[in-house]
């Protein structure tokens, strides 16, 4: 099956400082992919760059194709059809994504008119259907309300409705529940997986919360300092993480049941993009680092059919395994 989106060697630099350093990622139709990492790891920048949403001074290079067509640096008229129409995006702070002085109807209808060429009664009916779909009670009447009349969870539902207005093939949700309370987070995540199932849409869920990503995605990519360091099916990643950073992240998560244990803290902090260490960016914080880690940045190499890891130790152990298998 041809991938829906293919990202190859995507790099981004802001005034000469690299923040994204060669990201390769493939997304298939209808797939749910999780992107985890700490702040500054490049999870949001990857998609902002892919969709041409970064400010002009950002230097972007690499390839991003949507069903085989290059969209990186594509002309504005083509990007306008992609953004909102093929690929939609929702953000962490839904309240600031809506215009506070326009009714929900105006904002939803704007998106519908733009992407679906709907008019008159059909337009209104579709706006109402979308609000119904995302679970806003009394949708017909609530269309005339302003954003401040809704709660935080409801505003995020409205953002999802607007994102669905163009019937996208891919929805990118950038920390969609980070600003919401736990019980509301559960509602929004359930809504996202329901609409994804019903509409056969692909989903990229960007989050710093490993639990959120693990539960809602088929496949997870872990990012560190502008690179993907591990990519695996979510159950495998959490059962058996291969990259020391992924291991550290999972060990840093306090358990909710069973015996309490001391958290395995990753020492130090994320490196400053302007002073990136040579070789593996994680080596200065890695308990398993050896001298060779500082020489060259390891490439993201397959260790199994659907798993890729960027760590020289993983590569060495794979060679050892293969060596044993060959004998």
């Amino acid at each position: 099956m041809a991938p829906l989106v293919n990202i190859a060697g995507l790099s981004v630099a802001f005034s000469g400082v690299p923040v994204l350093r060669g990201v390769d990622l493939t997304l298939h139709k209808g797939e749910a992919l999780g992107l985890v990492g700490e702040s500054g790891s490049g999870k949001s920048v990857t998609w902002l760059a892919a969709l041409g949403l970064l400010p002009r001074h950002a230097q972007v290079s690499g390839k991003v194709t949507l069903e085989g067509r290059e969209i990186l640096g594509a002309p504005a008229t083509e990007l306008d059809r992609v953004r909102g129409g093929r690929i939609a995006m929702i953000f962490q702070d839904p309240a600031s994504s809506l215009n506070p002085v326009l009714t929900i109807r105006r904002q939803l209808c704007e998106a519908l008119a733009l992407h679906r060429n709907l008019q008159g009664i059909a337009l209104k009916a579709e706006a109402r259907r979308l609000l119904d779909l995302v679970g806003i009670p009394d949708a017909g009447r609530r269309l005339d309300a302003y954003p401040h009349e809704f709660s935080g969870g409801q505003v995020q539902r409205i953002m999802i409705a607007m994102a669905l207005a163009g019937n996208p093939d891919l929805l990118i949700a950038d920390e969609p529940t980070t600003a919401l309370d736990a019980t509301i987070q559960a509602q929004i995540l359930e809504l996202l997986s329901t609409v994804r199932r019903e509409l056969g849409m692909a989903l990229v869920l960007i989050s710093h919360d490993l639990g959120v990503v693990a539960e809602n995605c088929d496949r997870v990519a872990v990012m560190y300092a502008g690179r993907i360091v591990e990519e695996a099916p979510s159950n495998q990643l959490f059962a058996d993480p291969a990259h020391p950073y992924a291991q550290g992240l999972i060990g840093a998560l306090p358990p909710l049941d069973g015996p309490r244990r001391r958290l395995t803290a990753i020492p130090g902090t994320v490196p400053d993009p302007a002073k990136m260490p040579g070789g593996c960016a994680f080596a200065p914080r890695c308990a398993l680092a050896s001298e060779s880690c500082g020489l060259a940045a390891p490439s993201l190499a397959p260790i199994a059919d659907d798993r890729r890891v960027a760590c020289i130790r993983a590569e060495a152990s794979r060679r050892a395994l293969l060596g044993i298998a060959a004998e």
């Binding site: 709660s151 969870g153 409801q154 559960a186 509602q187 995540l189 919360d209 639990g211 539960e215 809602n216």
Partner: peptide, 24 residues
């Protein structure tokens, strides 16, 4: 019970999760 159930856990799929209706 709803709070504990809403806390996402790696390795556990969301089957059987209690999702509360309504707003905070």
């Amino acid at each position: 019970q709803a709070l504990v159930s809403a806390s996402p856990a790696p390795g556990r799929r969301s089957a059987g999760r209690i999702v509360l209706a309504g707003d905070p």
